[in-house]
Simulated assay, not measured.
Amino acid sequence: MAQQFLEMPDSQGFFGEYGGQILPPELKAVMDGINDAYEQVRKTAAFQGELADLYAHYVGRPSPIFYARRLSDRQGGAHIHLKREDLNHTGAHKINHCLGEALLAKHMGKTKVLAETGAGQHGVALASACALVGIECEIHMGEVDIAKEHPNVTKMKILGARLVPVTRGTRTLKDAVDSAFEEYMLDPVHFFYAIGSVVGPHPFPKMVRDFQSIVGREARAQFLAEHQRLPDVVMACVGGGSNAMGIFTEFLPDADVQLVGVEPAGRGLDTPDHAATMTLGTKGAIHGFICYNLQDEKGEPLPVYSIASGLDYPGVGPQHCYLKDVGRVQYESVTDDECLDAFMALSRTEGIIPALESAHALAYAMKLAKTLPPEQNILVNLSGRGDKDADFVAQHLGL
């Protein structure tokens, strides 16, 4: 089974029955060209060397692991450790794959890089990467998220990206994906759509996972060096699922390490106001691939909601769907209120303000820690920092 995890996806981009390319023939040819270019350059010493140099000297990798001692003492039970992706340049894990995608786009001679963004972290990271390599960048973002994540909007504009407000539908992440994809279809030969998670048609779930797997490689080596053992539980939030696949991938062969993905229950799983795709979704197609979906009886995506703009997507990465089906990863959910409690708890016990997305994983870790013996260790991927959320949270809580 361990080797099976490491060999996915297959040549058609499937993780079991999920993934693939649900595309018209002309766009499938474009995606196959991206896959061919990626497979060609990713194994070269020049590409890997340039990426490694940027990770070290631009991003600031490796990101450290921090033992949250006061938070752990507050909760009781297991020790809670944080993989500090919030310390990366641009403030989140997104820069890991944005650099890879921008370098690939430049290698392929593309003239413009397009993307969607929810919380704005992918947009800021991609705008930074495009500025660095010298390629035009256009970001599509829902009006709701623009208002909510204004600091990131300002950063994208400063970095030179063209920001396209999306006014259709729920005016959030799903609609931003639709808008960016329509722009991409105007000239897929010269444009590059830098998908912001392990979603979309093949090869994007594979490419984004590969670029993000630096997180897990570092974390596994760091934890072993510090503790002479692996963590008992590794945990990450899941929207599309890139930060989770980033930290999970290296631990997939370690059967003794429990892997937990945490998604948004929003205002409650008994309401329509959530984005708990893995918990309540059904198999279907969205945005060119097959995955678990929150969808109506006609197979159309349902409106979704989360207090964390980066998690309100009605689909999820195809590899996550496979890992759920085979039981390798356990998927849980936490509510907005639990997320906010974790956000404030980490801020006031450790002086670390987490992204609302990351606070979902932290919230479940805090609950789980109480149930485990003190000799056990939970490693949480703290995927981003909460600068972008601070004003919203302060207003929401009346601080």
Rank of each mutant, 00 (worst) to 15 (best):
H57I: 07
D312N: 13
R84T: 02
V177R: 03
I353S: 11
T277R: 10
V260S: 02
C137A: 10
A265T: 02
K83D: 05
L340D: 02
T154K: 04
F5K: 06
V144H: 08
V234R: 00
N96F: 06
Q4W: 14
P9Q: 08
E332G: 03
F223S: 08
E116A: 12
M366S: 06
G281T: 08
I290S: 13
A29F: 04
E226W: 11
G200I: 02
G310Y: 00
Q295E: 12
S179C: 11
F5M: 13
I307R: 09
G109Q: 06
G384C: 04
Q228T: 12
G16L: 05
R42T: 10
L372C: 05
A285H: 08
H150S: 14
G20F: 01
G261W: 05
N35M: 14
L379W: 06
Y67M: 14
E338A: 11
G386C: 05
F66N: 12
V329E: 03
H202D: 13
R348D: 12
I158A: 11
C130T: 09
E300G: 14
V234P: 00
Y322K: 11
A129I: 04
Y184L: 04
Y58W: 15
G60Q: 11
A2R: 15
E350I: 05
V199I: 13
F47T: 01
G261R: 07
Q222P: 08
E297V: 12
P231T: 05
A37D: 13
G123N: 08
H227D: 08
Q121C: 10
G216K: 01
V262C: 12
F191N: 15
V166K: 03
A265P: 00
Y184M: 03
A125K: 03
D325T: 15
M31A: 07
F343W: 13
H57M: 11
Y322N: 11
I95E: 01
G100V: 05
L323Q: 06
N88K: 01
D178E: 15
S197N: 09
A52Y: 07
S72N: 02
G160R: 10
H140L: 03
D337L: 08
K110Q: 06
H97D: 06
Y55F: 15
E357D: 09
C137W: 00
M235Y: 02
R171F: 12
L382Q: 01
P374I: 02
I158Q: 02
L382Y: 03
E143A: 14
M245P: 02
